[in-house]
Design a protein around this nucleic acid. Structure first.
Length: 839
RNA sequence: GCCCGGAUGGCGGAAUCGGUAGACGCAGAGGGCUUAAACCCCUCGGUUCGACAAGAGCGUGUGGGUUCGAAUCCCGCUCCGGGCACCA
């Protein structure tokens, strides 16, 4: 072990100056980028704008591997687009409201603000440690009073526009978080997506945003955005458009005739063509007209059924999924099938949901499997109205075919019959075409402290009233006591609660609910365009300058929630004149990176399987860690931590360092003068590298971009160690290009080497030009096939023509062996790459 | 059930327009440097037969098809991942 020290003593200068020391190099450049404002940008910058945004993080402490991955991709793009000559907007902020800080407060008594701000400081410094660069002048936090002011201002604007409202509704109550959740925050198994606790149904008055008013536009505009098909599909599924008709089923009297004195029930169907097959109808147990439409004899049974359905939790209902018994009970009343005029019995069934359509359906067992099962269970008649194909041995037939048993619809195919039936319903005044969506309004109130207060007050006389805009922001008090009950301390804080009614001036109480943190993240990307504006959340001009975000980057876990809400906000803000009128989408391009797993499970704090980046940053450096993230897998894929090759990446950087710092070859060995074939080839290789890396960057293929750099570095090692030695100028040109294309990936080491080589700053250099004339190799491999099998490979001139290629191919001894004296029946020549001789 | 993706060596992956399958990296083997080890440098790695050679056969989940030629295009199937789902 003493040898290394001896070496140091022998040649201290050489050791200190030339050794690759990531810690020293990286710290120095990180300070420089921040101090010099290298990536600050003004709104009047004359370069073409390019807005790169990585989803702003929840500040949970120092960056974890998921952050490193996300912000490495974003940073690469910021640096790359800057080199291409764009004026890049690269902001960062913190999603600083949320439950973890409040839970910590309940545990320790520390105010969520001091707790959160400490975590923000940690996260900021670790983002800088991975070399990510931002315009720090634009930093924002959702808990900042100015940000709160404008979030509340937007709430009031939406309220004014009728897009925010308060309503009593069945809501999702998370037993663990002690707050209501949006539908989007409840997992398919009926648990909370945050805490994993069971979610209950409760009937509560809550604040909502009318996102359903934008359902069709949200659906239509998915076609126009450059997002992963997978994400767009998830959004389309979530919106869940279904087109059909709503029609009225009159109530029948004892003789089976329609009663004029009682309103009919409305049902929604996507298959009005099957109307002749209606043999019963069903109400949801929660339907408001259940009591009215139940016969005296059926009252006890119906009441019992409703009670049972109400008691059944979401979880139990889901666990009953797939069971075929189709629980239901007869009302003892009948309705009229408007197509046939026949009376059919009315039922209650819990498979009919009050929250979708009209809460009532027509039963067509012939074409709907659930209806078939219900009909069988309750002894109801089944009438097919679509002819199933020959040999069909199933039960209900939902497919296409000619209408049967349907009078004036007979013979029509399903699509045509739907149109005819809908026309008929409309002309008879019995119904109308209708589109239904699965999407529900966004429930935004949360019964929590650490969020943006909803700017409303409640007056005994005037009801809920909006706080006047000039009174904003309504801030959270500092002097609060967090009780272990989990109740928001706002409920007991007189200073916060006391208010006067903006309408009548009388005493009023402040709303204690705060907003879902997804409200904060629904407009932060707009605020970045104009972060210091104190007269508006942002000016339309500034927003028009930068929006939509050219490249948005984040985790796939936000595919529905955040991304849907942000799209809704952007459209709504444009409609009410806050955002530019032409802005319909917030994120023109979206990239969703995969998650990191360890031991087969998603790497996360809650699972306790985090790998701390700090140790790697200390040992191998930020560049090695960044490179490992880029190299390990295509960026959109999930990745196992076990597959990361940090050491390999660090080794590669060492190779680049030694090559560029002149250690891999003696400087005196460099030639000058005439160029050899090897010199020309290494030069062409550099141009090919530039071209290849650029195309890889543009298609998010970072793993192959890294491979290209490694491959070229290997070539350079062979080049410098060849007996004739490298040509000085050629080698310099090659190294310059290698460092430039690597700069966005490994910004520190390339900056250091560049400065040592030429004294300039690599991150203000332009992306190198790949000269078209140098992209093509001079000699290429001509593959010769016989009957499609490779039989020989020949080195030929790249400009070879068909005749010459064929001559070379036929001259090959190996090829001749396989031709066995015969001459090819057919020749496919694709010079200079391939000749295929077919016998 | 409906809608999206996937499947390539021991491993992660590459092959961008239908034309050399396995780039690059990890793990492994051999060699060089060194008193020695580490570092570093070079070389070799799909598989079977063959002798460790030359050479040949087989190879991209599976079965067909189109084509001079298929990882790539088409049809069927299997398995894996994701989204939606008693949604009328």
């Amino acid at each position: 072990m003493p040898d290394r020290d001896d070496q140091r003593r022998d040649d201290p200068d050489r050791y200190d100056q030339n050794r690759y020391d990531p810690g020293a190099v990286e710290g120095r450049w990180q300070r420089r980028w921040r101090d010099e404002g290298t990536y600050e940008i003004d709104n009047d910058d004359s370069r073409p704008g390019f807005y790169v945004l990585s989803m702003y993080p929840y500040p949970s402490g120092p960056a974890h591997m998921g952050h490193v991955r996300n912000y490495t991709f974003g940073d690469l793009l910021v640096r790359y687009r800057t080199m291409l000559g764009d004026g890049v907007l690269s902001p960062i902020g913190f999603d600083s409201f949320g439950l973890p800080a409040e839970n910590a407060a309940i545990r320790t008594g520390e105010h969520p603000r001091t707790f959160t701000e400490a975590r923000i400081a940690e996260l900021s410094s670790s983002l800088q440690r991975i070399g990510a660069v931002y315009d720090w002048r634009r930093v924002l936090c959702s808990h900042d009073p100015e940000y709160i002011r404008w979030t509340q201002w937007i709430f009031l604007k939406l309220y004014e526009a009728g897009l925010a409202y308060r309503a009593e509704a069945p809501v999702n109550w998370c037993t663990g978080c002690r707050t209501v959740l949006a539908n989007e925050q409840v997992l398919p198994d009926g648990t909370c997506e945050r805490s994993g606790d069971p979610v209950e149904d409760r009937e509560l008055a809550q604040w909502f945003f009318r996102i359903t008013a934008y359902a069709q536009r949200l659906l239509d505009d998915t076609d126009s955005i450059d997002w992963p098909e997978r994400v767009k599909n998830m959004q389309r599924n979530w919106i869940g458009r279904s087109a059909g008709a709503e029609l009225a089923l009159p109530i029948a009297d004892a003789e089976g005739r329609p009663r004029a004195d009682v309103a009919p029930i409305q049902v929604f169907t996507t298959r009005p063509d099957t109307g002749f097959g209606i043999t019963y109808a069903v109400l949801s147990p929660e339907h408001p007209r259940v009591a009215e439409l139940t016969s005296p004899a059926q009252r006890p049974a119906v009441a019992a059924f409703c009670r049972e359905a109400a008691d059944r939790s979401e979880l139990q209902r889901l666990s009953a999924e797939g069971r075929l018994d189709k629980r239901g009970v007869a009302c003892g009343t009948s309705v009229i099938n408007p197509f046939t005029g026949q009376a059919v019995p009315l039922f209650l069934a819990d498979y009919v949901l009050m929250t979708y359509g009209t809460g009532a359906i027509m039963g067509v067992p012939g074409e709907d499997q659930r209806d078939w099962e219900f009909a069988v269970a309750h002894g109801l008649p089944i009438l097919r109205t679509v002819e199933p194909p020959e040999g069909f041995d199933g039960e209900a037939y939902p497919g296409d075919g000619p209408s049967i048993n349907s009078d004036w619809l007979d013979g029509l195919g399903v699509a045509a019959a739907i149109e005819r039936a809908a026309d008929w319903l409309e002309s008879q005044g019995l119904g109308r075409r209708k589109v239904n969506y699965r999407l529900r309004d966004w429930l935004v109130s949360r019964q929590r402290f650490w969020g943006c207060p909803i700017p409303m007050v409640r007056c005994e006389a005037c009801g809920y009233q909006p706080v006047p805009a000039e009174e904003l922001p309504i801030l959270l008090p500092d002097d609060v006591d967090f009780q272990p009950t989990g109740q928001s301390p706002l409920n007991a804080h007189e200073g916060f609660l006391a208010a006067s009614c903006p309408a009548c001036g009388g005493p009023a109480r402040r709303e204690t609910d705060t907003m879902d943190t997804f409200v904060d993240s629904s407009w932060y990307f707009l605020r970045f365009a104009d972060p210091a504006n104190d007269r508006a959340p942002f000016s339309a001009e500034a927003a028009a300058r930068w929006l939509p975000v050219d490249q948005y980057i984040g985790g796939i876990e936000h595919a529905i929630l955040h991304l849907m809400y942000a799209r809704f906000f952007t459209k709504a803000l444009a409609d009410i004149g806050v955002a530019p009128a032409g802005l319909s989408e917030p994120f023109a391009r979206l990239f969703t990176q995969g998650m990191i797993r360890l031991g087969g499970a998603k790497m996360s704090k809650s699972r306790g399987n985090l790998v701390a980046p700090e140790e790697i940053l200390d040992r191998q450096g930020a560049d090695a860690l960044r490179l490992a993230h880029l190299q390990v897998k295509p960026p959109q894929d999930d990745v196992d931590w076990e597959d990361f090759g940090i050491d390999g990446c660090a080794k590669f950087l060492g190779r680049v360092w030694r090559l560029a710092a002149g250690e891999a070859h003696p400087a005196s060995a460099a030639r000058s003068g005439a160029l050899t074939a090897a010199d020309l080839e290494i030069d062409r290789g550099a141009h090919r590298l530039v071209d290849r890396v650029r195309r890889d960057f543009d298609r998010w293929s970072y793993n192959t971009a890294v491979a290209a750099c490694m491959e070229y570095t290997n070539e350079l090692y062979r080049y410098v160690s060849a007996p004739e030695g490298p040509h000085g100028e050629t080698l310099d040109g090659a190294l310059d290009r290698l460092l430039l294309v690597m700069a966005p990936m490994v910004p520190h080491i390339t900056a250091e080497l560049w400065e040592r080589r030429c004294g300039r700053h690599i991150h203000t250099e332009a992306w190198p030009v790949a000269e078209a004339a140098k992209l093509a190799a001079e000699r290429v491999t001509l593959v010769v096939q016989v009957n499609g099998k490779v039989r020989d490979r020949l080195e030929v001139d790249a400009a070879i023509d068909e005749t010459e290629a064929l001559r070379c191919a036929l001259a090959s001894e190996r090829v001749q062996r396989h031709l066995d004296g015969a001459s090819p029946r057919r020749v496919i020549a694709r010079p200079p790459k391939l000749v295929n001789l077919v016998l």
